[in-house]
């Protein structure tokens, strides 16, 4: 087991009373339980505002959770300080959505890749070691090594994402979180990147947590899919199973819209009863009921 989330909660307050105590909340992540197994890619799908990006940030320790636990390979990391988190940060990295702002435009590609080795300076003390590693990774993402002296603005969106992927792989993480990593690219490039990611998985042996609202893409890369709605996971099953038989009404609406482009007339938002839990409906297909 690689990563386990237990009862994870993160609420953001939106209205504060005069004294600073919050009056109402946005339940970004509401009692989420998830497990990611090594080698089995998990995708979290949902609309914007469903909380999927917040989960990614919680896992990486960029924001702290209000309650709940995060286990990485059995170690509880949900409440560690920045310093204590360091050895774990090496094992998980992220590729962001916007290729235009995830690479600092003032840095050359070499400097960007070098910065990624901050956590593991020991192994990259000589520039020879650095160079070898950058060569290795650039060829893994199918980019030429003569780009090291260039600046991000000289590359297209797809190329920048590849650089971002190379950067994330520099210190050999076990888990790679891709937060809408292909959503801002056009379809042909999306296809290339997905193929690349699958190839890399074979060669480097890591696991992906893929966050997206694009079901077509998600289908190609994940073993398991979790559907999020308003901070809760409403359905969780293997890719095959969920495409064959979506059970929760929200999932059905999502799939109808995404695959058949059918707009579903939603009278009002789906209500989620307070005591709803994910229940196995057979075949390891969990639905919130």
């Amino acid at each position: 087991m690689l990563l386990k989330l237990k009862g994870l909660k993160k609420y953001f307050s939106i209205k504060k009373s005069m004294w600073g105590t919050p009056k109402s909340f946005v339940r970004a992540v509401d009692e989420v339980d998830l497990t990611i197994w090594a080698g089995k890619n998990l995708s979290i799908v949902g609309e914007s505002g469903s909380g999927k990006t917040t989960i990614a940030r919680l896992i990486l320790g960029l924001i702290t959770c209000d309650s709940g636990q995060i286990f990485f390979e059995g170690n509880e990391i949900g409440h560690l300080s920045n310093k204590d988190l360091r050895p774990f940060r090496q094992q998980m990295q992220m590729v962001f959505q916007d290729p235009y702002s995830s690479l600092d435009p003032r840095f050359t590609i070499y400097e960007i890749l070098k910065e990624a080795t901050t956590l593991n300076r020991y192994h990259f003390q000589t520039s020879l070691a650095m160079h070898r590693r950058t060569e290795e990774l650039l060829s893994a993402v199918q980019l030429k090594t003569d780009i090291l002296n260039r600046y991000p603005h000289e590359f297209s969106g797809g190329e920048r994402q590849r650089i971002a992927i190379a950067r994330a792989l520099m210190i050999n993480p076990k888990l790679l979180i891709l937060d809408e990593a292909v959503s801002s690219l056009d379809v042909l490039v999306q296809e290339q990147i997905i193929r690349l990611l699958l190839e890399i998985q074979k060669n480097f042996g890591l696991t992906y947590l893929f966050i997206s609202h694009n079901l077509r893409v998600v289908r190609k890369i994940s073993h398991t899919i979790a559907v999020m709605y308003k901070g809760k996971i409403v359905e969780l099953a293997s890719t095959q199973e969920i495409f064959r038989n979506p059970l929760h009404p929200y999932t059905q609406e999502l799939f109808a819209a995404a695959i058949h482009y059918q707009p579903v007339k939603r009278i009002k938002d789906y209500e989620i009863p307070e005591d709803a839990v994910l229940q196995d409906t057979g075949n390891e297909h969990f639905v919130l009921q």
């Binding site: 609309e47 609202h213 079901l215 999502l254 109808a256 819209a257 995404a258 482009y261 707009p263 579903v264």
Partner: peptide, 11 residues
């Protein structure tokens, strides 16, 4: 737009 909205706009 999100996928569900996309469907609505197309409709």
């Amino acid at each position: 737009l999100d996928v569900t909205l996309q469907a609505h706009i197309m409709d």
